[in-house]
Design a protein around this nucleic acid. Structure first.
Lengths: 228, 228
DNA sequence: TCAAAAAGGAGAGCACTGCTCTTGACGCGG
DNA sequence: CCGCGTCAAGAGCAGTGCTCTCCTTTTTGA
């Protein structure tokens, strides 16, 4: 393969630096980051940025995809570090990793899971990395089913829910019982809600020991799911 | 009492109309509503708005408080309409009312429970109306405890969590067991997560029958809490 | 009753934003 | 080595929040 031309290499470096500077701005200014400010920080003129990102939304999209991947990596590697047979430990590690990442990158988390930016529609590139944390969680349930250490909850689901979840299960983990998937999704929803509440300051005044609270609440969901 | 002067009456009407127009803009443009656009819609000049709201953030705050109250009213009245002895029905009604309101007012919901607007810090006036839905939910648990139809889950909470929740319970419903409060807050967190996922489009492609899904998932939390 | 004071609207202006267009300078492949 | 494509720079447009000044209208107090 041919060595990349100088132009191509410089261009890649520029893109990387723009994203780095933008990420820094994101941390302080939140979602309303300004192209002009980024350009100023790089000693460039604002119009030059448009050579690399056709619009502000495209820059945001790039940052969003990177953030999804960073979060996915954090969750997956934390979960992978736990003994495969320790299902509850894997669950807790994955949840905690998501929270730790969110607390370390609050602005990026807000970009991913906060209210959608008004004029902005997330392109399809984002749905795959966006589902990685959820897949990690559901993977724990699948492993537990496979070796019989999780018994799926009995009781029927209402039909439309059963059908929807059956279709979903067929797509990701064929054979996963719908009732178990429902509880896994409840856990995932809970995780998201917990992190959002904490990050958006909604339990600032009510729960001082947020670390212990988080662990306990995710443990509660592990109980609901039936993790041993 | 003296009749309000013409000025005062006109002023009140102006404030109301500004908020109404702003609410309309909110629905289409989301959180980045523009004072100038609101002024244009009213046939005013932008600087005139500042006679009524000293800054854009103050307008947003007014809208936020109104939205919190609207949501609180919706939840409370829906919950109050159910037979007092039907604890699960009250829970489901409250959850459903919150979801219905959110679906009917997505932009306002995003303002309340989405990512915080970057430069904006919610003033203290907002914390009381913000907690009304949560209090409604916890009130169901208190009633269930009072007449013995809910038995608090046994098992110890880790100490810092127990202490935090004991302090919280002492503030709102003295006598409510900490372990039950923990589950109630899990339900509240779940409710918020469910609505946010649905509203922010995170289960668009995965769960077509969102209505039934919502009901089932809130029912799951009712099970966890132990609602009869 | 009548002038002073307060309140509100209109307009200009400042600094900022995203984005477009044009003008040059530079690297690179034929 | 020359022309094509890439890129930085600057001017400019329409929009933003917000301030300040000017002017009219309403309220108020002696």
């Amino acid at each position: 393969m041919p060595a990349p031309s100088i132009r191509a290499r410089v261009r890649a470096e520029m893109i990387a630096e723009i994203k780095a500077v933008a990420r820094r701005h994101l941390a302080s200014d939140g979602a309303n980051l300004s192209l002009r400010a980024v350009a100023r920080d790089m000693g460039m003129v604002s119009s030059a940025i448009y050579r690399y990102f056709p619009s502000r939304d495209d820059l945001l999209t790039a940052l969003i995809i990177e953030a999804y991947d960073a979060l996915g990596d954090a969750v997956e590697s934390a979960e992978a570090a736990v003994d495969r047979r320790d299902l509850r430990g894997r669950w807790q590690a994955a949840c905690r990793a998501a929270r730790d990442w969110a607390l370390a990158h609050p602005a990026e988390y807000a970009l991913l899971y906060g209210s959608p930016v008004p004029g902005y529609a997330a392109p399809d590139d984002t749905v795959a990395p966006a589902s990685r944390p959820a897949l990690t969680l559901v993977g724990i349930l699948r492993d537990g089913m496979a070796d019989g250490r999780i018994t799926p909850p009995d009781g029927q689901l209402p039909e439309p829910v059963r059908a929807d979840l059956a279709a979903l299960a067929a797509e990701i983990f064929p054979g996963l019982p719908e009732s178990l998937l429902a509880r896994g999704m409840a856990g995932w929803t809970q995780l998201f809600g917990l992190i959002s509440f904490e990050l958006f300051g909604r339990l600032n005044r009510t729960v001082p020991h947020r670390d212990a609270y988080f662990t306990h609440q995710t443990g509660l969901m592990a109980d609901l799911i039936g993790l041993p």
